[in-house]
Amino acid sequence: MPATFTRSVVDTERERKDPGFGGRPPVDRRPTGGGGGDENWDHHRHGRGPRALLTRYRMGIFSALAGDLMFFMALVTAFFFRQSSGHFDGHGAYILDWHQLAIPPILYLNTAILLLSSVTMEMGRRQLFHELDVMEEWLGMGRPAARRAAPWLAATAALGVAFLIGQWMAWKDLAAQGFFFASNPSSHFFYLITGAHGAHLVLGVLALFAALAALSLLHRMELRQIFVDCTAWYWHSMGLFWIFLFGLLIFCQ
């Protein structure tokens, strides 16, 4: 059974030996090889083991995040492009309409919270890959892993909500200073960037709740693993993105 969770050395070996282009690789007659011996497609187990399922979903989330990164990159490009664009007034003087924006201090707190949440998230994720518990769950003897993970996920969700509330307060703060979304370019971008990132985090929190539900509802161990794992990676990347965007908002005003 363990072989299902950690890919067997043998077949990674074989992959590596495979010369690829043309050459004649060593034949391998394992029944679960490139689609077993029988001709009924639906009996083929290839790439359907728990491990394969996990890698598949991980790759899915990672490619999605790669695309997402481009989305934020585009916003950042716009940020710099916009920052440098001004106009000449009637008398030939060049005017930049970009106003420095005082970053609400609460953002530092939020950042700390977000980092903390990443830690709790990781703790939660680790629980589901804890070999012994995993074995127990796999053999259907209770759900120790799930039980251990749940609190961590809950904590993460809580912190996430706290972060969002914090962002909301930051907005209120700016509004109090008279900076609204439409006020001037720097505030456009402040609201846009925090807003876009916030929207991502809302998704993340929903995913966390879903994952919590999944821990108790889903019957297949690997699905529970996948649910938590993907949420975790998404959550971590949102943390990274935030550091990056926050740095932009602080240093590049």
Partner: peptide
């Protein structure tokens, strides 16, 4: 649909279906 295609090509290839094949 793109994510799906991407992941399919990366993870679903039958054994021996190397990139070069």
């Amino acid at each position: 649909s793109a994510i799906n295609v991407l992941v399919t090509v990366l993870t679903e290839r039958a054994r021996g279906m190397t990139l070069g094949r």
